[in-house]
């Protein structure tokens, strides 16, 4: 049962009493949008492959990257006492040495590929702050289609 609205209470299509809500709501929405935009600028990382990274050359140094690619299983070295994991990611003949100072992900040795996030230092070594492991199951070779990827948050600590 709407109250009667006098013409002088209207501003454009809105009632005067509603206008303050529109303005208030608008401010809040704007604030949220600004917050989102601002955080994007601060935290975004480019997601590329090993060969794409290789193409960037020296430009890549010092910035945040998220890189996906297969692990060269031969190169994996894990020093449990120092909690240091070293391995190379390889793709199309390009090699990216990665070092990670944390517990080795359980599934690393069974992975098809990993996604590492971090920065490249001056010597070209990738300092990973987190590792996501993508994993096949053992029927991959027999059954042609893709498999479910088992979850593993290892290393993606907040």
């Amino acid at each position: 049962m709407g109250e009667i609205v006098k013409p002088q209470d209207r501003i454009g299509p809105f009632r005067k009493s509603q206008l303050k809500f529109l303005v208030g709501g608008g401010i809040i929405i704007l604030a949220i949008l600004l917050l989102i935009a601002n955080s994007f600028r601060g935290t975004g990382a480019y997601y590329i492959t090993v060969s794409e990274l290789n193409a960037k050359g020296a430009d890549a140094i010092g910035r945040s990257w998220r890189i996906s690619g297969p692990v060269d299983k031969e190169s994996v070295q894990y020093d449990a006492s120092a909690l240091t994991l070293k391995f190379d990611m390889t793709e199309d003949g390009h090699r990216l040495p990665v070092v990670y100072h944390d517990v080795m992900p359980d599934l690393l040795m069974k992975s098809t590929s990993v996604i590492v996030e971090g920065r490249i230092d001056q010597s070209g070594v990738f300092e990973a702050s987190s590792i996501l492991v993508k994993c096949p199951s053992k029927y991959e070779s027999q059954l042609d289609a893709g498999q479910e990827v088992p979850p593993d948050h290892t290393g993606s600590a907040s």
Partner: peptide, 16 residues
């Protein structure tokens, strides 16, 4: 180019 955001983004936005 593909740009990803991780937990820091979400924590910063969702926290407030």
């Amino acid at each position: 180019s593909k740009i990803v955001v991780g937990p820091p983004f979400f924590n910063r936005v969702e926290g407030p």
